[in-house]
Lab assay of single mutants.
Amino acid sequence: LGPKYVGLWDFKSRTDEELSFRAGDVFHVARKEEQWWWATLLDEAGGAVAQGYVPHNYLAERE
């Protein structure tokens, strides 16, 4: 699936296409579209919880 990303700060969605998340949440990014990335929010087991657009500057690649 490629690298995983972690949320740096809490983010509250403003549209139906955006995905709310908390700092520390883990994502798989499917598409990078300039300022907004289409991402899947993952649970602790790595299963998909939700999908939506997230601001790229709120995520960091997980080491």
Rank of each mutant, 00 (worst) to 15 (best):
E63Y: 12
W37R: 00
E61Y: 11
S20C: 07
E18C: 11
A30H: 15
L8Q: 05
A39K: 01
A30Y: 13
E18H: 12
R31Q: 07
F21Q: 00
A48F: 11
S13V: 01
L8V: 07
A30D: 13
D10H: 06
W9M: 10
D43S: 07
L19Y: 04
R22K: 14
E34Y: 10
Q51D: 08
G7D: 04
W38A: 00
A45I: 09
L1E: 13
L19H: 01
F21V: 03
V29H: 02
E34C: 15
K4M: 15
A60E: 12
F11W: 13
L1Y: 12
E63P: 13
Q35I: 11
S20N: 05
G47F: 14
A39Q: 01
K32E: 04
A60N: 06
R22F: 11
W38Y: 12
W9L: 09
G24Q: 03
N57H: 11
Q35C: 15
L8F: 02
L19P: 01
L42Q: 02
W9Y: 14
K32G: 04
E33S: 09
V49D: 01
Y5R: 01
V26G: 04
A60T: 11
P3K: 14
G46P: 03
L1A: 12
G47Y: 14
G7K: 01
W36N: 06
L42S: 02
W9H: 09
Y53S: 03
T15D: 08
L59T: 03
G47K: 15
L19T: 01
R22T: 08
S13E: 02
W38V: 05
A30V: 15
Q35L: 15
W37L: 04
H56D: 06
K32W: 05
T15P: 01
L8M: 09
R14I: 10
G46C: 10
L1R: 10
E63V: 13
V26Y: 10
L59Q: 02
A48E: 13
V29D: 01
A50H: 05
A39Y: 04
P55A: 04
A48M: 11
P3V: 13
L19Q: 00
G2V: 14
A60I: 14
W9F: 13
Q51Y: 09
T15A: 10
D16Q: 11
Y53Q: 05
G46I: 09
S20H: 02
S13D: 02
K4Q: 13
E34T: 11
N57M: 08
H56I: 10
H56N: 10
Y5S: 00
Q35Y: 15
G24S: 03
H56L: 08
E33P: 02
G47L: 14
V6A: 03
E18A: 09
A45M: 13
L41T: 02
V29Q: 00
E18Q: 15
V54C: 11
E33N: 08
R14M: 11
V26S: 08
A60K: 13
T40M: 11
A60G: 08
K32L: 04
L1D: 13
D43T: 05
A23R: 11
P3Q: 12
L1W: 13
Y58R: 02
R22C: 11
R31I: 09
L59K: 01
E44S: 12
L41W: 03
L8P: 02
S20P: 03
L42A: 01
E18F: 12
G46S: 05
E61K: 11
T40W: 12
K32A: 04
G2C: 15
D16S: 13
G52E: 01
A30W: 15
N57T: 09
R62I: 15
G24I: 04
A50W: 06
T40D: 02
G46R: 03
N57C: 15
F21T: 00
Q35P: 06
S13L: 04
R31D: 05
G47M: 15
W36Q: 09
W36E: 01
Q51C: 10
G24E: 03
V54K: 02
G46Y: 05
S13Q: 08
H28A: 10
Y58M: 07
A23P: 03
F27L: 10
Q51E: 14
H56G: 15
D16F: 09
E33V: 08
K32D: 04
K4R: 11
V49P: 02
L19N: 00
A45R: 13
H56R: 13
S20A: 05
L41C: 04
H56Y: 14
F27S: 00
Y58K: 03
K4E: 13
G46T: 04
L59P: 01
A23V: 07
H28I: 15
E44W: 07
A30P: 03
D43G: 05
W37Y: 08
A50D: 08
V26C: 08
W38G: 00
E44L: 09
V54L: 04
R22A: 08
W37D: 00
T40I: 15
L8S: 03
R62W: 15
T40G: 01
R62F: 15
V26E: 10
P3C: 12
T15L: 08
G24N: 04
E44M: 08
K32M: 09
G52H: 01
V6F: 09
G46M: 05
H28W: 13
W37N: 00
K4I: 15
P55M: 05
E18K: 05
Q35F: 15
P55W: 07
E63K: 12
E63G: 12
D10S: 07
D16Y: 07
V49G: 04
Q35R: 12
G2P: 12
K12Q: 15
E44N: 10
K12V: 15
A23I: 05
L41R: 06
K32C: 08
V29S: 00
S13G: 15
T15F: 10
W9G: 04
D25H: 04
W36M: 13
E17I: 12
Y58Q: 01
Y53M: 08
A50R: 11
D10E: 07
A48N: 08
G7V: 08
P55H: 07
A23L: 05
E18M: 13
A30L: 15
V26F: 11
N57Q: 09
G2W: 14
V6E: 05
L1C: 14
L41N: 01
A50T: 07
K32P: 04
G7L: 08
L59V: 04
Y58D: 01
T15N: 13
Y53D: 00
Y58I: 03
L8H: 02
G46H: 05
F21C: 07
E44Q: 10
Q35D: 12
L59D: 04
L42I: 09
H56S: 15
R31C: 11
G47N: 15
T40P: 00
V29I: 09
Q51S: 15
S13F: 03
R62E: 14
V49L: 10
S13P: 05
H28G: 03
R31V: 09
A48D: 08
A30N: 15
Q51M: 11
R62V: 15
L8C: 11
A45P: 02
V49H: 05
